[in-house]
Amino acid sequence: MTTDGSKLGFYLLLAPILLWLVVLIILPHLGLFWVSISEKIGPREFQTGFGNYVTFFEEPLYWRTFARTAIMSILATALTLIFGFPIAYYIAKLTRGRTKTTLFLMCMIPFWVSELVRTFGWMILLRETGVFSNLLQYLGLVSGPVEFLYNDAAIMVGLVYTSILFMVVPLVTTLDSLDDSLIEAGYDLGGNSLSILREIVIPHAMPGIVSGCIVVFMLSLGNYLTPILLGGKDSLWFTGMIYTQFITRFNWELGSALGFLLLALSSGVVFLGLKLSRQSLADTMGRA
């Protein structure tokens, strides 16, 4: 398609994308790294060094929160997979036509709504004066108000809720492409539901499982609203620490270092997931 006349057109098309990627993505991240290796030695005086990273490893609060955020995100990812898989299978394999479209749409509507509204909904349900507490009192199961909010379980409920669609959608797509006759053949050859699930369904769904897990882990790791609003005073989350360093403490150097560590963890997991499943970023993300 390329002709002489379109040479100019080509450069005109190249300009916006380069401008976007260089000015808003590449340079800011290089700048972030640069700030993260600057140590403050006086007012407006800096020297280059890894002091901020050393602070991270020496201060237990920072690396413990980092580890906690990572572990809770892994747990949230696993729970999302366990809860989401049967739903995806139901939508992909056990429904047809209109029902399928409707169920799929019902899955999507909550995710078009702002995360803030969804989290607010959970606060109304879980708090001491909330719906669940009142329901339990009404049923006579407990004698006084119960606080369900402000603990790690509440964070987990919120995280799973927030990210389950990103697990269900890729799973439905991959399970849709699994031919029913393969499952029938499995039964004909004497398999039971469990062995068929293990030998046929899960191997086929693997690309969907991997891309779902990557996205859910990333979203949980980078989440700010859910842990801050649903978690208690001790439920620290790494994004919350970054926010504190930047906005409250105005310590941008340490904040940048923390931000870079979060970015490294998140990218590392994405890279590892893609390598393990032998997929490319273009295939995985293009599907979303």
């Binding site: 800011p28 972030l32 790791l221 970054i242 979060l262 970015l263 998140s266 994405v270 970023l281």
Partner: peptide
Amino acid sequence: IIPGVILGISILVF
């Protein structure tokens, strides 16, 4: 694949 918070602080810093 960049967390939104990081995207925000990097643009802020730059």
